[in-house]
């Protein structure tokens, strides 16, 4: 069983390989990032001119109010592209078959790919949040930084585990480009709900307190743990064909 390289070594190798491919091909940088940026601009077109409810006492613009949710929505759309990408890389030249033939632990491959995907998502979120600060006028507050960081880690991990799992499911199948969104978007709904509420609390959107946000980080954390465990158990059965 344990003849090959150790678990963590495989995780590290697979993650480093994926990140190196992304760095050299620049697909994430040149295509996914501009895509996410244009999505955020389009969101602004869609909601900016809607009138505020007359009764609301806040001085926020509508864009400021919805900014946390829009950033996570842009993240979900980008996730679809990144997941397609991370398994397209494996499908080319029979790379996934080679990986299987190397007789390494499938769970280690799962966590390696998850780590690479989570790294890309985490970087993307920082850029998109920065964009939201600039073009949506969202504002950070120092008391919410801890909550924001916790949400950032938990949500990118959750999205990466579930993305790798469902990406592996659709990998190598005809028609996966259209199938993946149908499979993935319903599953990540809890992350969208939880991460949006947590970031709202961290930024103080609509007058929410920082303390209101921590239960939502819990929701996202439970999600990440559940699908991390699911992926550890099921990934081997999915790619072993």
């Amino acid at each position: 069983m344990n003849d090959g390289p150790g678990f963590w070594r495989v995780v590290g190798l697979v993650a480093a390989k994926d990140l190196r491919i992304e760095w050299r091909s620049r697909v994430a940088l040149n295509q996914v990032l501009p895509f996410a940026a244009i999505v955020m601009v389009l969101f602004a077109f869609a909601v900016d001119r809607l009138p505020r409810p007359a009764a609301s006492a806040t001085t926020e613009t509508l864009l400021q109010t919805v900014a946390p949710g829009l950033v996570w929505l842009a993240m979900l759309f980008s996730l679809l592209l990144l997941v397609q990408r991370t398994f397209a890389v494996e499908a080319d030249d029979g790379a996934l078959d080679a990986l299987r033939a190397a007789a390494v632990d499938a769970a280690a491959v799962f966590w390696g790919k998850t780590a690479a995907l989570a790294t890309q998502l985490a970087a993307l979120y920082l850029l998109l949040l920065g964009t939201a600060l600039v073009i949506y006028g969202a504002e950070l507050r120092t008391s919410g930084i801890g909550l924001l960081a916790a949400t950032w880690i938990a949500a990118t991990l959750g999205l990466a585990t579930v993305g790798t799992l469902y990406g592996g499911l659709a990998a190598g199948a005809r028609g996966r480009e259209t199938l993946l969104p149908l499979l993935l978007l319903p599953v990540v709904a809890p992350v969208l709900i939880g991460a949006t509420r947590a970031v709202e609390a961290a930024l103080g959107t609509g007058g929410t307190a920082v303390a209101d946000g921590w239960p939502w980080v819990g929701v996202v954390g439970v999600f990440a743990v559940a699908f991390g465990a699911g992926g550890t158990l099921a990934f081997g059965a999915l790619i072993d064909e």
Partner: peptide, 23 residues
């Protein structure tokens, strides 16, 4: 194999969705 894994993942997914939507 694919669909069996997916059906079992749905068992994982649906309670999570229900819980988060209720919150």
């Amino acid at each position: 194999r694919r669909s069996a894994v997916l059906a079992l993942l749905a068992v994982l997914e649906i309670p999570l969705v229900h819980w988060s939507v209720r919150l």
